[in-house]
Computed example of a mutant assay.
Amino acid sequence: MKDLKHHPIIQQYIIWNRFGDLLGMDFEVKEKGHVMYRMPVKDIHLATPFAAHGGSVAALIDAALGVACLTEVCEDLKVVSTVNLTISYLNPAHKGDLLTADARVTKSGKRILFVEGKVINQKGELIATASATMNAYPVSKISEKVF
């Protein structure tokens, strides 16, 4: 398998994704359509003195779902955007946790992709599950400077 993380479109995503940098997120491409995203829970993620804000967990899983889809379409010179995101929060994420989002594409069409994922902490506790619908479109709609 090619290392899709080094594809020019994914490399450009890394440069553009300032929000991911702010939250301390990083990812690895396991294979086409499968991504693992990680985020340590720090003070900037907290909604209470000890628990992460749900928006932080949502940002992590949305990023994982999106990049999983991006690995499906980048070789066709496309990018993706979230059309619908559904999250179920099952347990709190606590300060000091290392969260891992595991996302896999379940169906990939020419324009619409379906993807599912989960977030666990370092103890293997299930924090959240999610599913999303993504729209794929030509990268030229957002930039001509990718290549």
Results as ranks from 00 to 15, higher is better:
Val41Tyr: 01
Val67His: 04
His94Pro: 02
Gln122Ala: 13
His53Cys: 02
Val119Ile: 12
Lys95Tyr: 09
Lys110Arg: 15
Met134Glu: 15
Asp76Val: 00
Thr100Pro: 09
Lys141Gly: 09
Val57Gly: 05
Thr86Asp: 15
Ala63Ser: 13
Gln11Phe: 00
Arg38Met: 11
Lys118Gln: 14
Asn84His: 05
Tyr13Glu: 00
Leu99Cys: 06
Ala132Ser: 15
Leu65Thr: 06
Ile9Val: 03
Asn135Cys: 13
Ile44Ser: 09
Asn91Thr: 04
Glu116Thr: 11
Cys69His: 05
Trp16Gly: 12
His7Gly: 00
Phe19Ile: 03
Lys123Cys: 08
His34Pro: 06
Glu144Gln: 07
His94Met: 12
Leu98Glu: 04
Asp102Cys: 04
Ser140Asp: 07
Glu125Cys: 06
Lys42Pro: 07
Ile15Leu: 13
Lys145Glu: 00
Ile87Gln: 10
Ala93Gln: 11
Leu126Arg: 09
Tyr89Glu: 00
Asp26Ile: 02
Val80Trp: 05
Ile61Asp: 06
Tyr37Gly: 04
Asn135His: 15
Gln11Tyr: 01
Glu28Asn: 09
Lys141Arg: 14
Ala68Asp: 01
Pro92Cys: 06
Met36Cys: 11
Tyr89Ser: 11
Pro8Cys: 05
Ile15Pro: 03
Val105Ala: 15
Leu22Pro: 01
Gly33Cys: 13
Gly55Ile: 01
Glu28Ala: 04
Val119Leu: 06
Pro8Lys: 11
Gln122Asn: 14
Lys2Asn: 09
Ala68Glu: 00
His45Ala: 07
Lys118Pro: 06
Ala128Gly: 12
